[in-house]
Design a protein around this nucleic acid. Structure first.
Lengths: 216, 216
DNA sequence: CTCGGGTGCTACCCGCCGGTAGTGTATCCC
DNA sequence: GGGATACACTACCGGCGGGTAGCACCCGAG
């Protein structure tokens, strides 16, 4: 089943897989849009199918249940947030530079994938236990990664703060919260918001003068 | 109907009203607990009634629908947040002192009424349009109140920040987010969290030395 | 004892929606 | 042209839960 397709050659097989992946992706797009606008329970599978110009059983050939669809919306996005944090922390440079990068990149994930983030935080209770546990493990790692970076910064004499864990939660909240107020096409672009949030985070961390503020 | 009860005297009437209010309050207590644990759509009115040792029609004598119940959970809590902000801003003292008070008091509302706050942010989409609009008006006033305080602080030379609106959103998010991670009986008490959040907020605002950090 | 009003219950309805079984049809190889 | 395969559709089910109609009970008043 994994190799050597029975009735057709490898090229055709490869393309078919791409098409399958594309269909799956389109379903996810519509689903997240509707869940974002109307809520998970406020959206029926018929709604999603209708929006795609197909019917409900079509969705069931790609996802095994409505909650499976929800998990497929949430999990990869939370994974992306964690990846952004890890990449930033492991990149070269001072703690200050790495925190700046972490905040900018994390903000980008939150705002670019705003509907997914919003759906996750709202519909947490609709996820199956296993899926929720998996996601919460990722979130925990995110918080710890950020807290460790803050501690490194303190050890290096770059930051001044009392409680790395609490500060990490505060920073995480400050950024995550943006899903509630950001409007695409608003006053500030995603990159501008990221820059300013990074400055605020550095001030919160008590970073040394040169970074956040240009005067004094 | 509002006065001069037909069959009984004023004292009895007063007590009956108190009992009515008490029943209403008990329903709200159970409802918010269950909505918090299982989600709005994951909780049936029968569940709530069962927990109270009554039946579904009992609830309908106090609330006209399930969404009415939801609004009664959310609105007063958001109102409390706004009240805390206004009271703090209008209290005497420097901008620094008032921001400190605002954060401490707002944090207290968020954490003491954590289930209500959580239910509101999760179940926004289940509220009726009118109720949601009313609540969103309160939230807008909250953000503006905080932003104005930040601007006053800048004008008074107490704060240093680029963008009062964004900073207000960041601070609001930092605190609001606590509903997602706070566990009663955890490492820090509600008052301790409030204190530390206030320190972080002051650093974010670029408040002058004496306040947030005790060394240097 | 009887009357009446207030209060909460039993019993029910009905629409909605997640999920499925079975069928039609386009495609491709021989 | 014929047969197999994959794919998506039509049509249906079943239960769940919000909301309601009407009844039974309790209690105070006369």
């Amino acid at each position: 089943m994994t190799n050597a397709p029975p009735t057709t050659n490898a090229t055709t097989q490869g393309m078919r897989d791409e098409i399958l992946a594309y269909k799956r992706e389109r379903i996810l797009q519509e689903a997240v849009t509707l869940f974002y606008e109307r809520g998970f329970t406020g959206t029926t599978l018929d709604d999603i199918a209708h929006e795609l110009g197909v019917t409900k059983p079509f969705i069931y050939t790609h996802f095994k249940s409505k909650t499976d669809l929800l998990a497929a919306i949430c999990l990869p996005t939370i994974q992306m947030s964690l990846d952004a944090a890890i990449t930033a922390v492991e990149s070269g440079g001072s703690a200050t530079e790495r925190l700046h990068k972490l905040i900018v990149d994390f903000t980008r994930v939150v705002l670019v994938r705003q509907p997914n983030i919003a759906v996750f935080f709202r519909e947490e209770k609709s996820l199956e236990r296993a899926a929720l546990a998996e996601i919460n493990a990722l979130r925990l790692r995110f918080d710890r990664t950020l807290a460790r970076l803050l501690e490194e910064g303190v050890a290096a004499g770059e930051f001044r703060l009392h409680d790395a864990k609490l500060t990490a939660l505060a920073m995480g909240g400050m950024i995550s919260w943006a899903y509630t107020w950001h409007r695409p096409g608003g006053r500030l672009s995603i990159e501008e918001i990221g820059q300013r949030m990074a400055e605020l985070a550095l001030q919160m961390a008590g970073a040394s003068p040169p970074s956040a503020m240009h005067a004094c």
